[in-house]
Nucleic acid binder design. Structure first.
Lengths: 217, 217
DNA sequence: AGCAAAATCCTTATAAATGGTGATTGAACA
DNA sequence: TGTTCAATCACCATTTATAAGGATTTTGCT
């Protein structure tokens, strides 16, 4: 038999806190270690108990869920964070994903999904509600739209850019492609100009944003 | 009234091809321009008709859906691609997303979802089935796991890395942070060492993979 | 056949990044 | 109170990248 998952629940609404507690306590695999009405006292509670996952709301006075998740990732990297948010707020979702939370559920989630999320997170994977995934996808594909349609790189330019991104020097690229360094340099210059970049960093950023490394020609 | 969406359907199974045709023809917003039993003749058909979206299977003889989508993105960037795949094959999903297809549905999709996907794609956005989104998320979070847990960058190092990624030179970073170029250089060197990179490209790659630019401290 | 774009190569100069080594200060922590 | 680590600065040598010109050859397309 596997160990119970130790959970700390944080929410500033007493009523919701009690509700979620009751819901989770009815699940034998879980162990509600403690609860908190705001994020500020969480570090203290953590030092007193062994905790696997912190389940937290986002909108809270004093210290909100995002700040809390940051603090946790920073000070206690082993403790996972599951966000439980009322609204399907795209800005919040972005922030949370960027801050590397381990999961994000909406408060209307069913008991079954909640358990699944907790188990998944406990196993070291991420768990996001469908709505959250959709938001994440949209966000990912938003940025590249404009660039992608306007900028045309030639086959060779893409190739050179690929090797630049793979940390090859001009020298090494010229060897790899059996062309002179001068030629590689010309491609480099054209890339800088086409992609409107000041230096290598800009080129690599473009390559990453447009997933150039994945392409196999 | 808006223009009809011109669609070309590609599938090597005659029966499925007819089925999907019948299904789509019953929708007034759509206009089935033509069909094809393999990817090879698609370029020819494109030159003959005006086409907005190519709906294609993946597993096909001669030229498969992935090759086709590549060709389309390359030669006819305005034409969108919607993949219709039988299997929920994670490797295929990865490949397609990497190759920047505009949508990916499973063949068990309902008429309603099919229409929604086509409309969404026609509007310039992406559309993926839920299963596909899940796969994409998993993939995204898989890579960074190992690195993220082992490598610890200091506050200052992250800051310097951020500006490197933003195409600042050492000079400019030192001005921005009110420290000497020597110090910036030291951070640079430590970053190269910590992130096991040969040069700036490696640093930027790491920053991109770990979404360092998004963080707001 | 003829045009346009891509790919190739060249030189000269300057700016920037990388490698190596060493040293000081202050904060955090046990 | 001693130790670790982050942050700061310095010097020197070398390698790479960037800037700015011009030039020729291949290739794809009509």
């Amino acid at each position: 038999m596997s160990k119970k998952i130790n959970i700390l629940i944080v929410d500033d609404h007493q009523i919701f806190l009690e509700g979620i507690c009751a819901l989770l306590e009815s699940i034998p695999e879980l162990n509600i270690v403690d609860t908190a009405l705001n994020g500020k006292i969480v570090p203290q509670l953590i030092s007193q108990h062994e905790i696997d996952i912190v389940v937290t709301d986002i909108n809270m006075p004093e210290m909100d869920g995002i700040e809390l998740s940051k603090l946790l990732k920073d000070k206690y990297p082993k403790i996972k964070t599951l966000i439980l948010s009322t609204h399907n707020d795209s800005a919040m979702i972005s922030k949370c994903i960027k801050n590397n939370v381990d999961g994000y559920l909406l408060k209307n989630a069913e008991k079954k999904e909640l358990l699944k999320a907790l188990k998944t997170i406990y196993d070291g994977e991420k768990y996001f509600a469908e709505e959250v995934k959709t938001e994440f996808m949209n966000q990912t594909f938003y940025q590249k739209k404009d660039r992608y349609n306007t900028i045309q790189l030639s086959r060779r330019e893409k190739e050179v850019l690929k090797y630049i991104t793979l940390e090859y020097t001009t020298q090494e690229i010229s060897d790899k492609l059996f062309i002179s360094q001068n030629t590689v340099n010309t491609h480099r210059k054209n890339l800088l100009s086409k992609l409107n970049s000041k230096n290598t960093a800009g080129l690599v950023k473009y390559a990453m944003e447009n997933r150039l490394l994945d392409e196999e020609d």
